[in-house]
Nucleic acid binder design. Structure first.
Length: 287
DNA sequence: CGGATTTGACCCGCGC
DNA sequence: GCGCGGGTCAAATCCG
């Protein structure tokens, strides 16, 4: 894993996506924060060229060392989406499919004469090599497990090095959905909860178990009261975001969902801004 | 009783 | 090769 104190700037720069944020955002994603994110496999840096710009690495690199050009939801439902992330390190073989275990075949075949194992064990081994796009949110909140409309089952917790706070691991309770999330508190600011999502939801069931049901396109249900987090990725969120990044590859201002501060969850007008407007506040959009 | 959580053990990748 | 740290598993436990 990356050394939080020494983010590897020698990475293939083309794999990075530069994001221009407001000064406020830049302040939020301060240096320490980027260090934390790098712990997640994200690399977030201030750009020397653009003091208020940040860069993040969506960490699409699989543990095989291959940088995929296309990452596809592992869900088999019709809601599965494909997202493309360009990279100059175009490896035609580095494309995962939406089949059950996209990297299973390629990685398994790459194994050198594996010792006799039970099929189950073999499968587990292959599955672990899959790394899906990740997306991190930072939210100022008292509660660790933020409501995002999906139901999560905790499957692990680990102490984090150099942090007094443990990191919790959650999986989407939908058996067909492989989305995972990690939740931890910032060691620098305990009031900040860092939530990292991995993968894409293949279902639209967005229900608050303790507060009624929402639809993915009903941000008004995310009433800005109490300490509710911002609307988090809906089933199409990653697609939209990454498409945005892709589209803007040669154009300015790709956008990140703005980290929220206490009592200021991000709610925008979807009727004006469309799907992305569910997530990205007006203040972050350039005219 | 079924589902969710806890927690120690285990596996794997990576750096030295 | 070894140790470390991250990530996952799965049995035990908890809880509604």
């Amino acid at each position: 894993m990356n050394d939080p104190d020494n983010p590897d700037l020698s990475n293939d720069d083309s794999a990075w996506r530069e994001l221009t944020l407001t000064a406020q955002d830049s302040d939020f994603f301060d240096r320490d924060t980027s260090n934390i994110l790098s712990d997640f496999g994200w690399n977030l840096h201030h750009s020397s060229d653009h003091p208020h710009s940040l860069r993040f690495d969506s960490d699409l690199t699989q543990t095989t060392g291959v940088k995929p050009t296309t990452v596809t939801s592992s869900c088999s439902s019709s809601a599965a989406v494909s997202v493309a992330v360009t990279s100059t390190n175009n490896n035609p073989s580095a494309t995962s499919s939406s089949s059950e275990d996209p990297a299973e075949n390629s990685t398994a075949s790459a194994e050198k004469t594996p010792p006799p194992e039970t099929p189950v064990k073999e499968k587990k081994k292959a599955q672990k090599r899959i790394r899906q796009p990740r997306f991190a949110f930072m939210t100022k909140s008292d509660v660790d497990n933020l409501e995002d409309g999906y139901r999560w089952r905790k499957y692990g917790q680990k102490a984090v090095k150099n942090s007094p706070f443990p990191r919790s691991y959650y999986r989407c309770t939908n058996s067909r959905c492989t989305v995972k999330k990690r939740v931890e508190r910032s060691s620098d600011d305990p009031s900040i909860v860092i939530t990292t999502y991995e993968g894409q939801h293949c279902h639209q069931t967005i229900g608050f178990p303790r507060g009624g049901i929402l639809t993915a396109h009903d941000p008004h249900s995310f009433t800005p009261h109490h300490h509710l987090p911002p609307p988090l990725p809906n089933p199409y969120y990653y697609q939209e975001l990454l498409h945005q990044l892709h589209r803007d590859n040669n154009a300015p201002t790709p956008r990140l969902p703005r980290p929220t501060t206490e009592d200021t969850p991000v709610v925008s007008n979807p009727t004006e801004e469309g799907l992305l407007g569910d997530i990205v506040p007006q203040t972050m959009r350039n005219p």
